[in-house]
Design a protein around this nucleic acid. Structure first.
Length: 148
DNA sequence: GCCAACGTTGGC
DNA sequence: GCCAACGTTGGC
């Protein structure tokens, strides 16, 4: 899961009550569908800081609640308000995520690029803009070895 | 700050 | 259903 640390950072997550937050504001259908259909309680998450250098995976979080309606879409005062999403027919969904552990040092995009096993990661693909991306088992295992 | 990539919108 | 215009993302 990608986030701009200026909006919501790895440190912010650790300051949350129970180190848990709802992942509101996803307004892309592919990312939404992935949350709705693929992400389940207990699944591992690589938490990635985009835009602000050094861009890097900061650590591991877990899905702690399956997808449910993103209620920020119902709030006219929210930046994430979407009048086309209603309580009865919600268009946008979110999951809850919980902090698990920080990497000793962030796994930077530059480092990821040097690792042959991670060459196929969605993160490295040109034009990739999706804020939530699947990670293969192989990639996951390799990253655990790099940052035990 | 630039710009490629790409998703969304809306007129037709 | 097409596609031009527009907005956003995000690495560089």
């Amino acid at each position: 899961m990608k986030t701009e640390p200026g909006t919501f950072s790895w440190e912010d997550l650790q300051k949350c009550k129970k180190k848990t937050t709802h992942w509101e504001g996803v307004r892309n259908y592919q990312a939404r569908n992935f949350m709705m259909h693929e992400m389940k309680i207990g699944d591992g998450i690589l938490f990635y800081h985009s835009v602000v250098k050094p861009t890097a995976i900061m650590g591991i979080a877990r899905v702690s609640k399956n997808a449910y309606p993103d209620f920020f879409a119902f709030d006219p005062d929210s930046n994430y308000y979407d009048p086309k999403s209603s309580f009865d027919n919600p268009r946008w969904f979110m999951v809850d995520i919980t902090f698990e552990r920080s990497f000793r040092s962030p796994l930077t995009l530059d480092e990821i690029k040097t690792i042959p096993e991670l060459k196929e990661m969605n993160l490295l693909k040109k034009g990739n803009r999706l804020s939530i991306q699947p990670v293969s088992q192989k990639e996951w295992n390799k990253i655990q070895k790099l940052r035990p």
